[in-house]
């Protein structure tokens, strides 16, 4: 008995691992079990056999197209947020007055969340909102632009909540890169562009991939803003709306679970592709070292 526990302890298994039990049980009971239950439900539709719910989803264009709609909103929004953050964060990586204030203000839209952002966008960008009023007064347009209840509204709401998120992450990755590396490059005669593209960007790239994934998850799960500032039955009918409608409007739990699982799989495929590309990049120390 003693010998066994010693042998296990040598491999790192001892009583302390019991501390993991509550958290693991929670995640298993509230995350893994519901997933399996949902999978089971999705395979037992009222009609159509085992894969009936999935077949129905992929044969009905109204359901199937939600995948493309979601990707068409989420991918450009996530890409724009990450790409726009890089030069801005690069400019701001040093210390300067008001940096804390600026980062604080940027956190505001993240904490406000999508529901409030949607409400604000409806007021601000609506046909008689301040934005259109300014454009009309300045004589830039003749008729108010339609910016809400369509693709643009949802896209802008994703930029407002997603950009600060991406920016703060990129900024923290950039601050982790030792500035002496760039100074060394400058000493050796590298210009601005060479330093950025050959030193900073390669070191930053894995961080950008992670940032893209997290921003994409946020954009992909767009739900309240797609309903409130979007066009939930047409151009912004995203897959989360399809899943919600199936489960809570039509009470077809098989279809709802199937749509939710398809949504998860599509998202994981995109993340897997990005992380796969990331593993091709250099991921090592970003500090200068003494060597």
């Amino acid at each position: 008995m003693v010998a066994l526990s010693h042998r296990l302890a040598d491999r790192g298994i001892d009583r302390h691992l019991f501390l993991l039990v509550p958290a693991t049980l929670f995640v298993a009971a509230l995350f893994i079990y519901p997933f399996c239950y949902g999978l089971g439900l999705s395979l037992q539709p009222a009609q159509g056999g085992t894969f009936g719910a999935y077949r129905e989803f992929f044969t009905d264009a109204y359901q199937r197209d939600t995948i493309m709609t979601t990707l068409k909103i989420a991918l450009p929004a996530a890409l724009l947020n990450v790409v726009a953050s890089v030069p801005i964060a690069y400019k701001m990586r040093g210390r300067f007055r008001g940096k804390r204030l600026l980062t604080t203000v940027l956190v505001v839209p993240i904490t406000l969340g999508t529901v409030l952002t949607a409400e604000g966008l409806l007021n601000f960008l609506g046909p008689t909102g301040w934005f259109n009023r300014t454009l009309l007064a300045a004589g830039i347009v003749d008729t108010p632009l339609t910016l809400t209840h369509n693709y643009t509204g949802v896209f802008l709401s994703l930029v407002i909540t997603g950009f600060p998120f991406a920016f703060l992450l990129v900024l923290s990755y950039l601050s982790g890169i030792d500035p002496s590396l760039e100074r060394a490059g400058a000493t050796l005669g590298a210009g601005w562009a060479q330093r950025f593209f050959r030193i900073t960007l390669p070191l930053l790239a894995p961080g950008l991939a992670t940032t893209f994934c997290l921003t994409f998850v946020l954009a992909f799960s767009v739900f309240p803003s797609a309903i409130l500032v979007g066009d939930p039955s047409g151009s912004t009918r995203v897959i989360s709306i399809a899943a919600y409608e199936a489960a809570y409007v039509r009470y077809d739990y098989a279809a709802g679970s199937a749509a939710a699982l398809i949504m998860g799989v599509v998202e994981l495929i995109v993340i897997a592709v990005v992380l796969g590309l990331r593993s091709l990049l250099y991921t090592g120390t970003t500090s200068g070292g003494k060597g």
Binding site: L39, S221, A247
Partner: peptide
């Protein structure tokens, strides 16, 4: 995983359970 998944994805099966 729960942080990487969109809340709606696991929210619907979870709410059903």
């Amino acid at each position: 995983l729960p942080i990487l998944m969109p809340p709606i994805t696991y929210g619907i099966p979870l709410a059903t359970v």
